[in-house]
Design a protein around this nucleic acid. Structure first.
Lengths: 108, 108
DNA sequence: CTCTAATATAAGTTTTTCCTTAAATCATGT
DNA sequence: ACATGATTTAAGGAAAAACTTATATTAGAG
């Protein structure tokens, strides 16, 4: 499943936003989403499954709870795809900025 | 229609890639897409309509031809949404970089 | 004005997505 | 062992997306 297929759904985007701040157990995610979107816990669980299967989220078992966290890899792919359009809205880089940008892209 | 709904379709993403390089008449786009995806001219035209309606592309009439070009605004929104996840893969900025970044985000 | 090329739109079908309810798992406290 | 709480999985249905073919529109050539 392609990254954009996953991000297409507003519920999944919201879940990722929640997880971006910090990890959460499935139940906590379900509570927020149920309140905001009015869907059932089962539906939320299905979305979590999509996020797992597509590599956007990782799970850690803690007793009866499943703790979800963001796995940023696929988001990075999206970011990479966007690169070719960024020149449309980003000002030209001068020489110093270019050097720093280069450093950022070649991390230690 | 949300930006991610538009980007979800691989044909539309490919069209945007084509237009990112330079503007093209609808027919030229259709030729490439038809070859690469095996769909009809009508289907391509429908995708172009989605891109128009959702603000991803602009059209300029030139005789019997319609010249399409990228309008980057919605892509910028996507970029903005990604911001919150970028700390996951981008190294920390030091003070000088922060200053420059700040300058870049507040153009002219 | 008529023909043709370029493109868009209409109508209908198939496929996919997302939701619901119901049932299955699995860990923990009693 | 049993009941309970947390979560996932299964099955089915409704709605949305993306094709196809056929038709409409519009510009320019002759």
């Amino acid at each position: 499943m392609h990254a954009f297929d996953v991000l297409r759904d507003p519920v999944r985007r919201r879940i990722l936003e929640l997880l971006a701040g910090e990890e959460h157990p499935a139940g906590a995610v379900a509570d927020v989403i149920r309140r905001e979107f009015g869907i059932t816990q089962a539906a939320v669980s299905q979305h979590l499954k999509v996020l797992r299967d597509s590599g956007f989220a990782t799970v850690r078992v803690d007793g009866a709870r499943r703790i979800y966290a963001v796995d940023p890899e696929p988001l990075r792919d999206v970011d990479a795809w966007l690169v070719r359009f960024r020149p449309f809205w980003e000002p030209k880089l001068d020489a110093l900025e270019t050097e720093i940008e280069r450093g950022k892209r070649r991390p230690r």
